[in-house]
């Protein structure tokens, strides 16, 4: 555990909590992509199956359980409790175009051809593109609420911090995992356009609006 990894994990947790609080306080999930939230839940479910097979640390298990419960909670709020506020007309990304290729790739490129390892690989690849329905939705409506942009900034920062963590681990432990690194870089690159808008607009007190 190093500081980049820890701050990355906390940033990830902060993102999830920001989104949950936004939905809970406003009693609305307008502007949030339910499809991205379903994909993130699928990411956690397929990655954290090792909760039952492999104990690493109390921190590791507790965080896994928190991520699982909070992401499933978000999906519950969106598709059940506050379903009437869900903006499905603008959430039209076809997730099968992500899940099917990612599923195929995880069978072809993995560390070990075993069920748990393939599911772990699937979750890493899927996470890298799971935000696309949300970004697609923002590009369709042309704007995002400020609280939603804080959510996206915290979520994007998390994987960027993980990349720094992997560089650090390579130099201090000689450790690297190419699957995680490549997917993590793809994931972070997808946020670059958003990061630019966030820094130039949201941090200066303006709402995030795309040029018409």
């Amino acid at each position: 555990m190093n500081v980049f990894r820890l701050v990355g994990d906390l940033s990830h947790l902060l993102a999830i909590i920001i989104l949950l609080l936004k939905i809970w306080k406003t009693r609305s999930c307008a502007g949030v992509s339910g499809k991205s939230q379903i994909l993130f839940s699928l990411v956690f479910i397929t990655r954290y199956l090792d909760l039952f097979t492999n104990f690493i640390s109390v921190y590791n298990s507790v965080m896994k359980i928190i991520y699982l419960v909070t992401s499933l909670g978000t999906v519950y709020l969106m598709y059940f409790k506050f379903k009437a506020t869900y903006d499905s007309n603008h959430d039209t990304f076809r997730i099968e175009f992500l899940v099917v290729p990612v599923g195929g790739l995880s069978f072809l490129v993995n560390h070990d051809f075993t069920p748990l390892e393939i599911l772990w690989t699937f979750s890493i690849y899927l996470e890298s593109v799971a935000i696309l329905p949300q970004l697609f939705m923002i590009s369709k409506t042309g704007e995002a609420e400020t609280i939603t942009s804080h959510y996206l900034f915290a979520l994007g920062s998390y994987r960027a911090l993980y990349i720094v963590n992997w560089v650090y681990r390579y130099y201090t432990e000689g450790f690297f995992d190419l699957i995680a690194i490549v997917a993590g870089c793809v994931q972070t690159i997808l946020y670059c356009d958003f990061f630019y808008l966030y820094i130039t607009k949201v941090l200066k007190g303006k709402q995030l609006k795309l040029p018409a």
Binding site: D9, N54, I56, S57, H111, W120, F175
Partner: peptide
């Protein structure tokens, strides 16, 4: 080891 290492991450 190589694979055990990544699994300590989230």
């Amino acid at each position: 080891s190589f694979k055990a290492a990544i699994k300590d991450e989230l």
